[in-house]
Simulated assay, not measured.
Amino acid sequence: MSVGANIRRIREERGLTQAYLAEKAGISQAMLCQIERETKNPSLQVSVEIAALLDCDVKDLCDNGRAAG
């Protein structure tokens, strides 16, 4: 899985909306949508913020097929 797909999967597992996660991460919902659709890549800073909000490691966002705890 790609970073975007992992963000989407973990976000949905946590029961969070795109709007909520984007707002808390300091990005627009449109930007998060583009990240999840893999048309944009998040910066390292945004990746760290998203990982913190999803209660996982940045590594979990990059892993292929491994579940986040």
Rank of each mutant, 00 (worst) to 15 (best):
S2M: 13
S2K: 15
G4K: 10
G4A: 04
G4F: 07
A5F: 13
I7Q: 03
I7P: 00
I7M: 05
I7L: 04
R8W: 12
I10A: 06
I10K: 00
R11C: 08
R11Y: 12
E12D: 13
E13T: 11
T17N: 08
Q18F: 09
A19V: 15
Y20A: 10
L21D: 03
L21Y: 04
A22M: 04
K24D: 14
A25Q: 02
A25D: 02
A25W: 05
G26D: 12
S28N: 10
Q29M: 08
A30L: 14
M31G: 03
L32A: 03
L32W: 07
C33T: 12
C33R: 14
I35P: 00
E36Q: 02
R37S: 03
R37Q: 13
T39A: 03
K40T: 05
S43C: 06
S43N: 04
L44A: 12
L44G: 00
L44C: 07
V46A: 06
S47H: 02
V48S: 08
V48M: 05
E49W: 00
I50Y: 06
I50K: 02
I50D: 05
A51P: 10
A52I: 05
L54D: 03
L54H: 05
D55N: 11
C56Q: 07
V58G: 04
V58R: 01
D60T: 01
D60Y: 04
L61D: 00
C62Y: 08
C62Q: 12
D63T: 10
D63M: 06
N64R: 13
N64D: 10
G65K: 15
G65D: 14
A67T: 11
A67Q: 15
A68T: 08
